[in-house]
Design a binder for these strands. Structure first.
Lengths: 185, 185
DNA sequence: GCCAGATAGTCTCACCTGCAACTATTCTAA
DNA sequence: TTAGAATAGTTGCAGGTGAGACTATCTGGC
Protein backbone atom coordinates (compact mmCIF):
# COMPACT_ATOMS: atom_id res chain seq x y z
CA UNK A 1 0.00 0.00 0.00
CA UNK A 2 1.82 3.05 -1.21
CA UNK A 3 1.15 5.90 1.17
CA UNK A 4 3.68 8.50 0.16
CA UNK A 5 2.36 11.45 2.11
CA UNK A 6 -0.79 12.39 3.92
CA UNK A 7 -0.69 14.17 7.24
CA UNK A 8 2.83 15.23 6.41
CA UNK A 9 1.88 17.15 3.32
CA UNK A 10 -1.50 18.30 4.51
CA UNK A 11 -0.36 21.83 5.24
CA UNK A 12 1.93 22.07 2.31
CA UNK A 13 -0.47 23.37 -0.31
CA UNK A 14 -0.95 27.09 0.06
CA UNK A 15 -3.93 27.69 -2.20
CA UNK A 16 -2.37 30.27 -4.45
CA UNK A 17 -5.28 30.43 -6.87
CA UNK A 18 -7.56 31.79 -4.19
CA UNK A 19 -5.70 34.98 -3.45
CA UNK A 20 -7.61 37.15 -5.87
CA UNK A 21 -10.86 35.93 -4.35
CA UNK A 22 -10.75 38.59 -1.67
CA UNK A 23 -14.43 38.32 -0.78
CA UNK A 24 -13.84 34.94 0.81
CA UNK A 25 -12.14 35.00 4.21
CA UNK A 26 -9.15 33.30 2.77
CA UNK A 27 -7.86 29.89 3.84
CA UNK A 28 -9.66 27.60 6.20
CA UNK A 29 -13.16 28.57 5.39
CA UNK A 30 -13.38 24.84 5.44
CA UNK A 31 -15.72 22.39 7.00
CA UNK A 32 -14.88 19.10 8.60
CA UNK A 33 -17.70 16.75 7.70
CA UNK A 34 -16.93 14.70 10.77
CA UNK A 35 -17.73 17.66 12.98
CA UNK A 36 -20.75 18.77 11.01
CA UNK A 37 -23.88 17.95 12.95
CA UNK A 38 -26.17 17.34 9.96
CA UNK A 39 -23.76 14.86 8.45
CA UNK A 40 -23.21 13.12 11.74
CA UNK A 41 -26.91 12.86 12.42
CA UNK A 42 -27.52 11.40 9.00
CA UNK A 43 -24.81 8.85 9.34
CA UNK A 44 -25.83 7.93 12.85
CA UNK A 45 -29.48 7.55 11.91
CA UNK A 46 -28.57 5.38 8.93
CA UNK A 47 -26.39 3.17 11.08
CA UNK A 48 -28.99 2.78 13.81
CA UNK A 49 -31.68 2.05 11.24
CA UNK A 50 -29.51 -0.60 9.69
CA UNK A 51 -29.00 -2.22 13.08
CA UNK A 52 -32.73 -2.38 13.66
CA UNK A 53 -33.60 -3.40 10.12
CA UNK A 54 -31.97 -6.73 10.83
CA UNK A 55 -34.84 -7.43 13.19
CA UNK A 56 -37.81 -6.43 11.14
CA UNK A 57 -36.53 -7.12 7.67
CA UNK A 58 -34.48 -10.24 8.06
CA UNK A 59 -36.79 -11.76 10.60
CA UNK A 60 -40.22 -10.62 9.54
CA UNK A 61 -39.79 -9.39 5.99
CA UNK A 62 -40.94 -5.89 6.83
CA UNK A 63 -39.51 -2.73 5.37
CA UNK A 64 -39.37 0.59 7.19
CA UNK A 65 -42.71 2.00 6.02
CA UNK A 66 -44.44 -1.25 6.89
CA UNK A 67 -42.86 -1.28 10.30
CA UNK A 68 -43.97 2.30 10.84
CA UNK A 69 -47.56 1.43 10.01
CA UNK A 70 -47.48 -1.51 12.39
CA UNK A 71 -45.85 0.56 15.08
CA UNK A 72 -48.47 3.28 14.83
CA UNK A 73 -51.40 0.88 14.80
CA UNK A 74 -49.90 -1.18 17.57
CA UNK A 75 -49.36 1.78 19.81
CA UNK A 76 -52.74 3.34 19.35
CA UNK A 77 -54.98 0.40 19.94
CA UNK A 78 -57.79 2.08 18.05
CA UNK A 79 -58.19 1.98 14.31
CA UNK A 80 -56.90 5.03 12.49
CA UNK A 81 -56.60 6.26 8.95
CA UNK A 82 -53.66 5.94 6.58
CA UNK A 83 -53.52 9.70 6.58
CA UNK A 84 -53.05 9.69 10.32
CA UNK A 85 -50.23 7.20 10.08
CA UNK A 86 -48.56 9.29 7.39
CA UNK A 87 -48.81 12.44 9.50
CA UNK A 88 -47.58 10.72 12.66
CA UNK A 89 -44.59 9.11 11.08
CA UNK A 90 -43.87 11.95 8.68
CA UNK A 91 -43.90 9.56 5.77
CA UNK A 92 -45.31 10.36 2.33
CA UNK A 93 -48.87 9.19 1.85
CA UNK A 94 -48.03 7.19 -1.25
CA UNK A 95 -45.38 5.32 0.69
CA UNK A 96 -47.87 4.58 3.44
CA UNK A 97 -50.43 3.54 0.87
CA UNK A 98 -48.07 0.93 -0.52
CA UNK A 99 -47.11 -0.31 2.91
CA UNK A 100 -50.79 -0.65 3.80
CA UNK A 101 -51.50 -2.62 0.63
CA UNK A 102 -48.68 -4.99 1.39
CA UNK A 103 -49.71 -5.45 5.04
CA UNK A 104 -53.30 -6.07 3.99
CA UNK A 105 -52.15 -8.78 1.62
CA UNK A 106 -50.18 -10.40 4.40
CA UNK A 107 -53.24 -10.12 6.66
CA UNK A 108 -51.25 -8.30 9.31
CA UNK A 109 -53.71 -5.42 9.27
CA UNK A 110 -57.28 -5.04 8.18
CA UNK A 111 -59.33 -2.05 7.19
CA UNK A 112 -62.91 -1.13 7.71
CA UNK A 113 -64.92 1.47 5.91
CA UNK A 114 -65.72 4.61 7.76
CA UNK A 115 -69.43 5.17 7.37
CA UNK A 116 -69.04 8.80 8.41
CA UNK A 117 -66.50 9.58 5.71
CA UNK A 118 -66.39 7.15 2.87
CA UNK A 119 -63.15 8.55 1.51
CA UNK A 120 -61.15 7.02 4.27
CA UNK A 121 -60.64 3.63 5.90
CA UNK A 122 -59.83 2.76 9.48
CA UNK A 123 -56.83 0.52 9.82
CA UNK A 124 -56.06 -1.83 12.65
CA UNK A 125 -53.94 -4.84 13.44
CA UNK A 126 -55.35 -8.28 12.90
CA UNK A 127 -54.74 -10.96 15.50
CA UNK A 128 -51.81 -12.07 13.41
CA UNK A 129 -50.53 -8.51 13.24
CA UNK A 130 -50.80 -8.10 16.99
CA UNK A 131 -48.88 -11.28 17.57
CA UNK A 132 -46.13 -10.13 15.26
CA UNK A 133 -46.13 -6.70 16.88
CA UNK A 134 -45.81 -8.10 20.34
CA UNK A 135 -43.06 -10.39 19.28
CA UNK A 136 -41.17 -7.66 17.48
CA UNK A 137 -41.36 -4.85 20.01
CA UNK A 138 -39.24 -6.43 22.72
CA UNK A 139 -36.62 -7.30 20.17
CA UNK A 140 -36.43 -3.72 18.95
CA UNK A 141 -36.38 -2.36 22.45
CA UNK A 142 -33.55 -4.70 23.22
CA UNK A 143 -31.64 -3.38 20.22
CA UNK A 144 -32.30 0.16 21.29
CA UNK A 145 -31.02 -0.62 24.76
CA UNK A 146 -27.88 -2.16 23.29
CA UNK A 147 -27.24 0.86 21.14
CA UNK A 148 -27.79 3.30 23.97
CA UNK A 149 -25.92 1.21 26.49
CA UNK A 150 -22.83 3.29 25.85
CA UNK A 151 -24.54 6.16 27.68
CA UNK A 152 -25.19 6.29 31.39
CA UNK A 153 -28.76 6.68 32.59
CA UNK A 154 -28.14 10.37 33.14
CA UNK A 155 -26.60 10.79 29.74
CA UNK A 156 -29.51 9.04 28.08
CA UNK A 157 -31.87 11.40 29.79
CA UNK A 158 -29.84 14.39 28.72
CA UNK A 159 -29.63 13.05 25.19
CA UNK A 160 -33.40 12.66 25.02
CA UNK A 161 -33.86 16.16 26.32
CA UNK A 162 -31.47 17.70 23.83
CA UNK A 163 -32.93 15.81 20.89
CA UNK A 164 -36.30 17.00 22.13
CA UNK A 165 -35.19 20.60 22.08
CA UNK A 166 -33.92 20.34 18.53
CA UNK A 167 -37.09 18.61 17.40
CA UNK A 168 -39.08 21.31 19.01
CA UNK A 169 -37.16 24.11 17.40
CA UNK A 170 -37.60 22.39 14.05
CA UNK A 171 -41.31 22.20 14.80
CA UNK A 172 -40.96 18.50 14.57
CA UNK A 173 -42.81 17.61 17.67
CA UNK A 174 -46.06 16.07 16.75
CA UNK A 175 -47.32 13.92 19.54
CA UNK A 176 -50.20 11.56 18.95
CA UNK A 177 -52.44 14.06 20.65
CA UNK A 178 -51.52 16.86 18.32
CA UNK A 179 -51.87 14.61 15.32
CA UNK A 180 -55.28 13.73 16.69
CA UNK A 181 -56.20 17.34 16.78
CA UNK A 182 -54.98 18.00 13.27
CA UNK A 183 -55.88 14.88 11.45
CA UNK A 184 -58.59 13.38 13.58
CA UNK A 185 -58.42 9.74 12.72
CA UNK B 1 -63.49 17.58 12.40
CA UNK B 2 -65.07 14.75 14.30
CA UNK B 3 -62.83 13.65 17.10
CA UNK B 4 -65.07 11.27 19.00
CA UNK B 5 -62.57 9.68 21.34
CA UNK B 6 -58.87 9.31 21.62
CA UNK B 7 -57.09 9.65 24.89
CA UNK B 8 -60.40 8.97 26.58
CA UNK B 9 -60.83 5.53 25.08
CA UNK B 10 -57.18 4.63 24.85
CA UNK B 11 -57.31 2.50 27.96
CA UNK B 12 -60.63 0.98 27.24
CA UNK B 13 -59.68 -1.99 25.09
CA UNK B 14 -58.48 -4.89 27.17
CA UNK B 15 -56.95 -7.09 24.51
CA UNK B 16 -58.96 -10.21 25.19
CA UNK B 17 -57.60 -12.10 22.25
CA UNK B 18 -54.11 -11.96 23.62
CA UNK B 19 -54.72 -13.72 26.86
CA UNK B 20 -53.76 -17.13 25.57
CA UNK B 21 -50.43 -15.71 24.49
CA UNK B 22 -48.96 -16.15 27.94
CA UNK B 23 -45.35 -15.82 26.79
CA UNK B 24 -45.82 -12.13 26.13
CA UNK B 25 -45.91 -9.92 29.23
CA UNK B 26 -49.51 -9.03 28.58
CA UNK B 27 -50.78 -5.54 27.89
CA UNK B 28 -48.61 -2.57 27.21
CA UNK B 29 -45.79 -4.33 25.59
CA UNK B 30 -46.19 -1.34 23.38
CA UNK B 31 -43.79 1.13 21.95
CA UNK B 32 -44.30 4.82 21.52
CA UNK B 33 -42.59 5.72 18.29
CA UNK B 34 -42.17 9.24 19.53
CA UNK B 35 -40.03 8.02 22.38
CA UNK B 36 -38.11 5.51 20.33
CA UNK B 37 -34.60 6.78 19.74
CA UNK B 38 -34.05 5.18 16.32
CA UNK B 39 -37.24 6.67 14.96
CA UNK B 40 -36.47 10.06 16.42
CA UNK B 41 -32.97 10.06 15.05
CA UNK B 42 -34.23 9.15 11.62
CA UNK B 43 -36.84 11.83 11.61
CA UNK B 44 -34.48 14.42 12.98
CA UNK B 45 -31.79 13.60 10.44
CA UNK B 46 -34.30 13.76 7.61
CA UNK B 47 -35.56 17.12 8.77
CA UNK B 48 -32.12 18.59 9.21
CA UNK B 49 -31.06 17.27 5.82
CA UNK B 50 -34.09 18.83 4.23
CA UNK B 51 -33.25 22.16 5.81
CA UNK B 52 -29.74 22.05 4.40
CA UNK B 53 -30.75 20.68 1.03
CA UNK B 54 -32.40 24.00 0.33
CA UNK B 55 -28.93 25.50 0.23
CA UNK B 56 -27.10 23.06 -1.94
CA UNK B 57 -29.91 21.76 -4.10
CA UNK B 58 -32.04 24.81 -4.71
CA UNK B 59 -29.12 27.16 -4.92
CA UNK B 60 -26.39 25.12 -6.53
CA UNK B 61 -28.18 22.14 -8.05
CA UNK B 62 -26.21 19.66 -5.97
CA UNK B 63 -27.59 16.48 -4.50
CA UNK B 64 -26.35 14.90 -1.30
CA UNK B 65 -23.73 12.59 -2.80
CA UNK B 66 -22.36 15.46 -4.89
CA UNK B 67 -22.20 17.68 -1.85
CA UNK B 68 -20.38 14.96 0.06
CA UNK B 69 -17.76 14.67 -2.62
CA UNK B 70 -17.24 18.42 -2.68
CA UNK B 71 -17.12 18.56 1.10
CA UNK B 72 -14.50 15.86 1.29
CA UNK B 73 -12.33 17.33 -1.45
CA UNK B 74 -12.74 20.81 -0.05
CA UNK B 75 -11.71 19.81 3.41
CA UNK B 76 -8.68 17.82 2.45
CA UNK B 77 -6.93 20.15 0.13
CA UNK B 78 -5.02 17.32 -1.44
CA UNK B 79 -6.38 15.19 -4.22
CA UNK B 80 -7.84 11.89 -3.11
CA UNK B 81 -9.48 8.89 -4.67
CA UNK B 82 -13.17 8.18 -5.13
CA UNK B 83 -12.68 5.19 -2.91
CA UNK B 84 -11.41 7.45 -0.17
CA UNK B 85 -14.43 9.71 -0.47
CA UNK B 86 -16.72 6.71 -0.34
CA UNK B 87 -15.05 5.39 2.79
CA UNK B 88 -15.00 8.77 4.50
CA UNK B 89 -18.62 9.56 3.87
CA UNK B 90 -19.86 6.01 4.21
CA UNK B 91 -21.51 6.22 0.83
CA UNK B 92 -21.66 3.40 -1.70
CA UNK B 93 -18.95 3.55 -4.31
CA UNK B 94 -21.41 3.47 -7.20
CA UNK B 95 -23.19 6.47 -5.75
CA UNK B 96 -19.89 8.29 -5.43
CA UNK B 97 -18.96 7.28 -8.94
CA UNK B 98 -22.09 8.87 -10.34
CA UNK B 99 -21.63 12.00 -8.28
CA UNK B 100 -18.05 12.27 -9.52
CA UNK B 101 -19.18 11.91 -13.13
CA UNK B 102 -21.69 14.66 -12.71
CA UNK B 103 -19.24 16.99 -10.96
CA UNK B 104 -16.66 16.36 -13.67
CA UNK B 105 -19.20 17.31 -16.31
CA UNK B 106 -19.92 20.51 -14.44
CA UNK B 107 -16.20 21.16 -14.16
CA UNK B 108 -16.43 21.52 -10.40
CA UNK B 109 -13.82 18.83 -9.88
CA UNK B 110 -11.09 17.36 -12.02
CA UNK B 111 -9.25 14.11 -11.90
CA UNK B 112 -5.71 13.15 -12.64
CA UNK B 113 -4.33 9.73 -13.26
CA UNK B 114 -2.27 8.18 -10.56
CA UNK B 115 0.87 6.94 -12.20
CA UNK B 116 1.60 4.69 -9.24
CA UNK B 117 -1.72 2.89 -9.46
CA UNK B 118 -3.49 3.25 -12.72
CA UNK B 119 -6.72 1.79 -11.39
CA UNK B 120 -7.49 4.90 -9.46
CA UNK B 121 -7.75 8.63 -10.08
CA UNK B 122 -6.97 11.52 -7.80
CA UNK B 123 -9.84 13.95 -7.49
CA UNK B 124 -9.63 17.59 -6.57
CA UNK B 125 -11.65 20.75 -6.81
CA UNK B 126 -11.22 23.00 -9.81
CA UNK B 127 -11.02 26.72 -9.31
CA UNK B 128 -14.73 26.86 -10.05
CA UNK B 129 -15.34 24.09 -7.53
CA UNK B 130 -13.36 25.90 -4.87
CA UNK B 131 -15.30 29.05 -5.42
CA UNK B 132 -18.56 27.19 -5.08
CA UNK B 133 -17.28 25.38 -2.01
CA UNK B 134 -16.20 28.56 -0.32
CA UNK B 135 -19.49 30.18 -1.09
CA UNK B 136 -21.50 27.23 0.12
CA UNK B 137 -19.71 26.41 3.35
CA UNK B 138 -20.62 29.58 5.26
CA UNK B 139 -24.24 29.16 4.23
CA UNK B 140 -24.35 25.63 5.54
CA UNK B 141 -22.56 26.58 8.72
CA UNK B 142 -25.08 29.33 9.19
CA UNK B 143 -27.91 26.82 8.79
CA UNK B 144 -26.27 24.50 11.26
CA UNK B 145 -25.93 27.34 13.74
CA UNK B 146 -29.58 28.21 13.30
CA UNK B 147 -30.64 24.64 13.88
CA UNK B 148 -28.46 24.24 16.94
CA UNK B 149 -29.28 27.68 18.29
CA UNK B 150 -31.94 26.11 20.48
CA UNK B 151 -29.16 24.62 22.58
CA UNK B 152 -26.86 26.56 24.84
CA UNK B 153 -23.13 26.38 24.24
CA UNK B 154 -22.83 23.84 27.02
CA UNK B 155 -25.67 21.79 25.69
CA UNK B 156 -24.16 21.75 22.22
CA UNK B 157 -20.93 20.49 23.66
CA UNK B 158 -22.73 17.80 25.58
CA UNK B 159 -24.75 16.85 22.54
CA UNK B 160 -21.58 16.47 20.48
CA UNK B 161 -20.04 14.37 23.16
CA UNK B 162 -23.03 12.06 23.47
CA UNK B 163 -23.38 11.65 19.72
CA UNK B 164 -19.70 10.88 19.70
CA UNK B 165 -20.11 8.16 22.27
CA UNK B 166 -22.88 6.50 20.30
CA UNK B 167 -20.91 6.72 17.08
CA UNK B 168 -17.98 5.20 18.82
CA UNK B 169 -19.96 2.32 20.23
CA UNK B 170 -21.36 1.70 16.76
CA UNK B 171 -17.81 1.69 15.49
CA UNK B 172 -18.79 4.57 13.31
CA UNK B 173 -15.87 6.75 14.08
CA UNK B 174 -13.68 7.00 11.08
CA UNK B 175 -11.67 10.15 11.17
CA UNK B 176 -9.78 11.32 8.13
CA UNK B 177 -6.62 10.02 9.72
CA UNK B 178 -7.99 6.54 10.16
CA UNK B 179 -9.33 6.57 6.64
CA UNK B 180 -5.85 7.61 5.56
CA UNK B 181 -4.40 4.63 7.29
CA UNK B 182 -6.87 2.26 5.75
CA UNK B 183 -7.42 3.63 2.34
CA UNK B 184 -4.29 5.63 1.69
CA UNK B 185 -5.55 8.32 -0.62
C1' DG C 1 -79.30 22.56 -3.45
C1' DC C 2 -75.10 23.43 -5.85
C1' DC C 3 -70.51 24.53 -7.13
C1' DA C 4 -65.65 25.40 -5.79
C1' DG C 5 -62.23 23.91 -3.11
C1' DA C 6 -60.35 20.59 0.25
C1' DT C 7 -59.26 15.84 1.50
C1' DA C 8 -58.33 10.38 1.49
C1' DG C 9 -56.31 7.20 -0.98
C1' DT C 10 -54.33 5.10 -5.38
C1' DC C 11 -51.47 5.11 -9.29
C1' DT C 12 -48.03 6.46 -12.77
C1' DC C 13 -43.80 8.44 -13.68
C1' DA C 14 -39.21 9.72 -12.99
C1' DC C 15 -35.44 9.55 -10.21
C1' DC C 16 -32.23 7.73 -6.92
C1' DT C 17 -29.61 4.15 -4.95
C1' DG C 18 -27.71 -0.35 -3.68
C1' DC C 19 -26.35 -4.70 -5.55
C1' DA C 20 -23.71 -7.25 -8.34
C1' DA C 21 -21.43 -8.06 -12.58
C1' DC C 22 -17.78 -6.38 -15.34
C1' DT C 23 -13.14 -4.29 -16.90
C1' DA C 24 -8.71 -2.92 -15.90
C1' DT C 25 -5.09 -3.05 -12.94
C1' DT C 26 -2.31 -4.43 -8.99
C1' DC C 27 -0.83 -7.61 -5.41
C1' DT C 28 0.44 -12.18 -3.51
C1' DA C 29 2.32 -16.44 -3.25
C1' DA C 30 3.93 -20.49 -5.24
C1' DT D 1 7.12 -15.62 -13.82
C1' DT D 2 2.52 -16.39 -13.43
C1' DA D 3 -2.10 -17.69 -11.92
C1' DG D 4 -5.46 -16.34 -8.68
C1' DA D 5 -7.12 -13.06 -5.43
C1' DA D 6 -7.92 -8.33 -4.43
C1' DT D 7 -9.02 -3.56 -5.56
C1' DA D 8 -10.67 1.00 -8.20
C1' DG D 9 -14.08 2.45 -10.72
C1' DT D 10 -18.24 1.96 -14.07
C1' DT D 11 -22.58 0.29 -15.46
C1' DG D 12 -27.10 -2.43 -15.95
C1' DC D 13 -30.79 -3.74 -13.30
C1' DA D 14 -34.25 -3.85 -9.89
C1' DG D 15 -36.53 -2.04 -6.01
C1' DG D 16 -37.97 1.82 -3.34
C1' DT D 17 -39.78 6.54 -2.96
C1' DG D 18 -41.57 11.34 -3.65
C1' DA D 19 -44.13 14.40 -6.75
C1' DG D 20 -48.12 15.04 -8.68
C1' DA D 21 -52.20 13.62 -11.39
C1' DC D 22 -56.45 11.37 -10.71
C1' DT D 23 -60.94 9.55 -8.60
C1' DA D 24 -64.18 9.64 -5.12
C1' DT D 25 -65.98 12.00 -1.46
C1' DC D 26 -66.88 15.71 1.70
C1' DT D 27 -67.39 20.66 3.24
C1' DG D 28 -68.51 25.45 3.13
C1' DG D 29 -70.39 29.43 1.11
C1' DC D 30 -73.79 31.27 -1.81
Amino acid sequence: MAKPSTAASRRQAKPVEDDRNAAVPLEDERLDLFKFAPFRLNRLAAEVSAALAIEYRERYGLDIPEWRVLATLGFRREACSAQYVAACTRTHKSTISRAVTSLLERRLIERVENAEDRREFRLRLTRKGKTLYEELIPRLQQREREIMACLSADERKTFDRLIGKIEESLDLIQTSEEADAKQAY
